[in-house]
Structure formats: structure tokens, C-alpha cells
Amino acid sequence: MSALIELDRVSKSFSRGGLFSTRRVEAVKEVSFALDADKPEIFTVIGESGSGKSTLARMILGIHAPSSGQVRLGGRDVATYERRAFMAEVQPIFQNPFEAFNPLKRLDRYLFMTAERFGGATGTSAVDGSVDEALRQVGLSLPEIKGRFPHELSGGQLQRVAIARALVAKPRLIVADEPVSMIDASLRMSIVNLFGRLRDELGLSIVYITHDLATAYYISDRLIIMQQGVVVEQGPARAVLSAPTHPYSRQLRDAVLTPDSAGAFRATHSRKAAETPGARS
């Protein structure tokens, strides 16, 4: 097999702390996996808040250099790529769209620039056309977005612009860090279905970081579960989620709140639980 992206025992540590108490945080510890170039897939990363998912994403994107280990794109160390050539192949969708965009820059500028620099579009009408097409795939359009600044959109709209921006570049790999957490269930399904189509029709691979176990089950091919920087369980998504073996994976699965399972939480945490029966008028 030839690998599209390959993580070879990748670790990252940060130092943090005040004057007297510097501490090293090992955000990611010896993580290895590879995505096959000939087998597009949605590869899901699930895990604890703070378990290193975003750090992992930033290493794949070449934003952080690993403390040890190597990330390779097409067999070549990501660090040796010229930035522009790399970005034409790998595109990010960041966790918090409010932080991903410069508040003083018009959103259409980002889209136009991406279409020209990475998406290979030339000429105003081709650029407009490819930007509009990408926006329509996420339920928006160029006329709606043109001239607007990030703070003028809702959280979900902004996240969809971020997804469209990644699509415009026509990359081979998208690294999506919690792309749907700010989006309602209905739109979330539309976007996850879009990811499925990108994989099946365009042969795109997606690293999908999420807390949403239901969409992970529904759309992904393989997944890893992380806790404190370490991969604690991995395998085919449906097999792992239907029968998780690591205690943390089980804990995760059991913590999912659904309208059906919510009753147990209410019984112990409801305001009403604290009341004497019949107090309600």
C-alpha cells in the first residue's frame, strides 16, 4: 500500500505553567496510523477533552512540529513541504470557527484566495463559480456571503463557510476538527452525508475529529479513541462502537445523552428531584 498520510510514532509535549511551577504536558504520545492513498476513508478520532485531538490535527497539518516521530504525506516528511504545495493537498477545518477567521477580513476574500491559490481556479467567473458551488454544498451561497464579516454570521453558518473554504481548494485530505459540534442535527446530517459523498465520489479522505458518536458510527470507516494523549482503542468504527472493550471507550459510550437515555440523568439531577412530592401547584 502507498500511504496518503502516515503518522509514525508521533508525540508532542508542551511546557506550561507559572514562574515557579513549570510542568510538561504530554499532549500526544506515540500515535501511529496511516490512511491508504488508494482507499479513501473517513477516519474518526474520538476522545477526552484535552486528550490531544487538536494537537494531533495540528501536527498532521504541519502547524506544530512533533516533539518526536514523523508525519508523512505521500511518503515525504510534512516538514519538508513547501507550504503552498502542502495546502493544495491537505486542508483544515478548525474546531472553533470564531477563532479560525480574522474578524477584520471579509469572508469571501478567504474563499476567493483559496480558490485561486490552491483550487486552481483562474478568472473572476471561474473563481466565483467554484466558490458558489462549494458554498451551495453546505447550504449557503455566494450572494448570501459576499461582503460579510465573520461576526455577521451565526456560529453554524460560519462553520459551514469554513467547510466550504476547505472544499474550494479541492484537496486530497481534509482534517476536520469537530466540524459539526456547532450545527443542529438536521444540518449535521447534511454535512456528514456530504463528507460521505466527497469520499465516495471524489475519493477524498477525511480525518474527522468529533464528540458525536452517532455520526461517527454512521459515517466513518475506522476510528481511534484517545485518552490523555494515548490511543486506547482502534478499529473499524462500527465494530468498536457496538462493542467497545477499553473501559474508557465504554464510559464514553455510556455517557451519550439521547432523548431516550435522558431519563436517568433527570432522575438524579432534576430540579424536581430536590423537591418534596406534590409541592408543585
Binding site: D184, A185, R188, M189, N193, D212, A214, Y218, R253, P259
Partner: peptide
């Protein structure tokens, strides 16, 4: 619609937006 469209673990069928 909002309540019916909620994805659940175990879904393999497409739930449409």
C-alpha cells in the same frame, strides 16, 4: 422533524437533513 432527525448510535440508514 428536529426530534425525528436525531442520529443515534447504531444508525446505518441515511437520515436526511
Amino acid at each position: 422533524h428536529l426530534i425525528a432527525s436525531l442520529p443515534r448510535i447504531g444508525d446505518t440508514e441515511q437520515r436526511e437533513g
